[in-house]
């Protein structure tokens, strides 16, 4: 029972922390660009404001636009149930790494359709580009997951985390590191970060993710924004839990849990800094340069699987 409660607390923490992570990244970026920037809790305020606003729905749109925000929200909540963050407990029997990938696919699928629903050019552009990015990055994610699955003998994320965390350094090798590198590119690509997309842009021709949300307003927009914040948090968490989980609590004792929480927060912060540095120091890539980066991620992940067998 304790493990179930712990798993639920962990999920609640992930869901609650998501806007904060976005706020932290924004703050870090502001500092690097010599701005003061909004407070790190600003995303909470933004979401609360949007929840109180009315919404305008395109007269061309259909039921797809209505249900998409809820599908996105719930698929991310269910995904959050499957991801171990600071302790190796979760509702992992519900689904494994492959289920996670397909829950993300579900969010993307509905978002890309909702983008087409209103019949605006921007929505179509966003949808089309999102499918280009995902068609290259989703296999990269799957292959990097398969690498750790081969290393640990399971595709269940909780088991992966605990096997790697308890095995000392014996699993560190080219396979794990290549897979981690591929997944880091995926974190940027899947969450609309520079150099793939710019989350703070509203310049029409460079948008991918924002273009898809263009027709949303009010509560619906709040849900879509919140889902993408949760998605970012989950990706950052998975990057650590699936590849470099050391520090996570593998047993339910107070010191282990305390250490797990501290290490987890430190890990979140580390990747937040990495993302902020990348976003402040790089420009967004031209759209048709993107495939080079994305196929690069795919090849890294593929090499990871290969090196598991060959080395």
């Amino acid at each position: 029972m304790a493990d179930l409660v712990l798993a639920l607390i962990q999920t609640a923490a992930l869901l609650a922390l998501a806007p904060l992570l976005t706020g932290i990244i924004r703050k870090l970026k502001a500092w690097m660009q010599s701005r003061r920037g909004p407070p790190i809790y600003q995303p909470y305020l933004d979401l609360a404001k949007l929840m109180r606003k009315g919404s305008v729905v395109s007269e061309d749109s259909s039921w797809v636009t209505t249900i998409t925000p809820y599908v996105c929200l719930i698929s991310m909540v269910v995904a959050a149930l499957l991801v171990p963050a600071f302790v190796t407990e979760s509702l992992g029997f519900l689904g494994d790494l492959i289920v996670l990938v397909y829950l993300f696919a579900m969010t993307r699928f509905f978002t890309a359709l909702a983008a087409l629903d209103a019949g605006s050019t921007f929505g179509g552009m966003g949808s089309s580009r999102e499918m280009l990015v995902s068609s290259l990055i989703e296999p990269a994610i799957l292959l990097s997951f398969f690498t750790v699955a081969l290393l640990t003998g399971t595709t269940s994320l909780v088991s992966v985390t605990s096997v790697i965390a308890t095995s000392g350094a014996s699993l560190i090798g080219p396979a794990l590191l290549l897979a981690f590198a591929a997944f880091l590119i995926a974190v940027l690509a899947e969450n609309a970060r520079v150099p793939v997309d710019n989350p703070s842009t509203h310049l029409e021709l460079t948008m991918i993710h924002e273009a898809m949300l263009l027709e949303y307003s009010g509560k619906d927009l709040a849900l879509m924004e919140y889902s993408s914040m949760v998605k970012l948090t989950l990706f950052v968490t998975i990057a650590w839990s699936a590849f470099l989980p050391w520090g996570v609590a593998t047993e339910i004792t107070a010191p282990a849990l305390a250490l797990g929480v501290i290490v987890f927060l430190a890990k979140l912060l580390t990747l937040a800094v990495v993302i902020a540095v990348i976003e402040s120091s790089m420009a967004k890539l031209r759209l048709f340069r993107l495939p080079n980066l994305l196929t690069g991620a795919f090849m890294l992940a593929f090499l990871a699987v290969m090196s598991y067998f060959v080395l």
């Binding site: 009315g54 919404s55 395109s58 061309d60 605006s120 509560k219």
Partner: peptide
């Protein structure tokens, strides 16, 4: 839950953003 949160907010039909 979401529809009832913060009171019922208006949902208006409008034209798609057309630049």
């Amino acid at each position: 839950l979401v529809r009832s949160w913060g009171g019922r907010t208006p949902r208006v039909k409008g034209k798609t953003w057309d630049c």
